[in-house]
Structures are given as structure tokens and as C-alpha cells.
Amino acid sequence: MTRQIGTPHKFRPHDLVWIDDPRSFIAATPTPTPAWVATTLAAELVMVVRRGRVSPGLIPVGVRGSARDERFAGAVASGSITRRVRPEDLLSQRQEPTQARRDAMPALEGFYAVMSAWADLNLPWGPVGSVGFELATGVPVATASSDLDLVVYAASYLSEQDGNLLLEAVAGIDAVADIQVETPQGGFSLREYCDGRSLRRRLKTCDGGARLVRDPWSNA
């Protein structure tokens, strides 16, 4: 049995956080901040908690622009965060897209299909990526070619067999479902975990790096 290791702060990667003032955002690199960052933050003061190493009291975050390559890393003081939406919160409370939008964006429609398919799943899970962002903010960022990015929180061991059941349940949706499993050690791809090809699989670690591991729940 793997022991649950406490996170250094209550915010986890993929959480969306709103801050009090654009000036609370601290850029990660000294390079000039691109113009789209200010435009984006002027519209909505929301950012995505990311993996990364930052000073105590700071939360690593990223600003998400409208284009695919518009991602800008930084940090915010936890005290400047006014609101937080976790992926699992979006199962019960969200900005509902119109039916027309759901029909046009397979990833959005796929989310509703997964909600039915995983209705009995007793692990916390929710949408992340463009679908999660759109459902949390109402900003229409999902596109017709968006993947449906999902996160499942597995504090303790999840068997490949159970993982395969989750994958089978989402196999019928029209979008590519990219499912990330979060353990206390980091995040891994459920598809890779279940494909049975490699002994060591990629784990994205909490400090922002990645390594190959045999057991994504073990610190070893």
C-alpha cells in the first residue's frame, strides 16, 4: 500500500486559479513577456497550475493564450489567488456550452459521453486542457481537432486491468481521449501504462521534469 504523500501546497497541476491583479503574475523567464499574455490576462485573470520548481509560497502557473503555441510560464503567490477550480469540480459545476458548440467540437461532446461512461468511477477525475478550460471559464478555446484531455487522481495503485476498463469505456468517442493519471509522485499516460510494451514508463514529476519508472506510485 502506497502512503499518500502530502503535497507542498493545496494546489495541484491542472487546477485553474484566478488571481486578484495582473501584476501578481511573475514571469518565469527574464525575456520580455509576449504581448498576448497581457491581452489574455486583461480578458480573464485565470491561469493553469503547472509542474515546476518555485520558491516556497509561490505556485507555478502558466497563462494559456488562444493559439496552440501560446503558453507562458510563471508563478503567483498563493495569497494572490482568489478562486480555484479543480478538474473534478467541473463534473458538477461548469459553464455549459451550447448544444451547437458541443455538436461542432467532438472533444466537448466526448466529455459528456465520458461522464456517463465513468459514472461509477470512484476516483476523482475531470477534464483538463482546452475542454477543462472552456468548461471552467466559458472562453471557447476547444477546437474541432482538440484532444479530450482528462486527469484521473489515483492516490494508490491502479491496476492495468482497471486502467483498460477506463480506456475501453471511452473508446467510442469521436475525439482522441488523452488520459493522464496523477499519483503522489507525478503524472503518467494511462494509454502507455496499459499498452504493455515497456517495462519502464514515462512519469512527469512534480518538479517539472520527467523520468522512466517501473512503478509510478513508488518514490524509488
Binding site: 484531455d149 488523452d178 499516460s189 494509454r191 502507455e192 510494451r197 515497456s198
Partner: peptide
């Protein structure tokens, strides 16, 4: 022969 990795953004 080896086949590794995942079809998905960032991978």
C-alpha cells in the same frame, strides 16, 4: 523492434 510513446499533444 521497439514501439514506445503515446499519440497525444506534448508527446
Amino acid at each position: 523492434r521497439a514501439h514506445v510513446g503515446v499519440v497525444g499533444s506534448g508527446d
